[in-house]
């Protein structure tokens, strides 16, 4: 009757408003049977992390296309650490140059999806990795 569902937060830090990708991914994840919480645009790192905590999500998906990822992502990951939310699987999407990927992965962002990633790839990634971290 009641069963465990994957709960996932799709969040958009930064001031840009390119939410096409975030919404398409959110919808695909829902259609894959997950419970998707979407924050809307322009969320501060504090708002995002507090939402992760209150909603007790298994996964956090971040989307940014303004180029400010190296400002916002480290802040988010640090706050996650401070709040002891290390078991949350984090991935990101948007326009992120190749050379930024490694430093972001070192912060604990497990995967970074660029433009043109099929939604299936994101779904598979979430399903596969969320089980591992549980």
């Amino acid at each position: 009757m009641t069963e465990k569902k994957i709960r996932i937060l799709v969040a958009k830090p930064g001031l840009d408003s390119h939410d096409r990708g975030a919404k398409v991914v959110a919808r695909a994840l829902r259609d894959a049977g997950m419970e998707v919480i979407y924050t809307g645009l322009r969320q501060t790192p504090e708002q995002i992390v507090e939402t992760v905590l209150q909603e007790d999500v298994d996964v956090l998906g971040l989307s940014i296309l303004s180029g400010a990822h190296m400002t916002h992502f480290p802040k988010i990951m640090n706050l996650m650490k401070q709040k002891d939310l290390k078991d949350v699987l984090v991935f990101a999407g948007g326009i992120i140059p190749e050379e930024d990927i490694e430093p972001l992965q070192k912060l604990g962002i497990r995967e970074i999806f660029g433009p043109g990633t099929p939604t299936e790839t994101v779904i598979d990634f979430v399903k596969k990795n969320v089980q591992k971290s549980r």
Binding site: A26, R27, L29, R30, A32, G33, M34, Y38, T39, E55
Partner: peptide
């Protein structure tokens, strides 16, 4: 079986 939970947006 999935859901889109969007009410929070207005309370963020």
């Amino acid at each position: 079986g999935g859901a889109f939970l969007g009410d929070r947006i207005r309370m963020q």
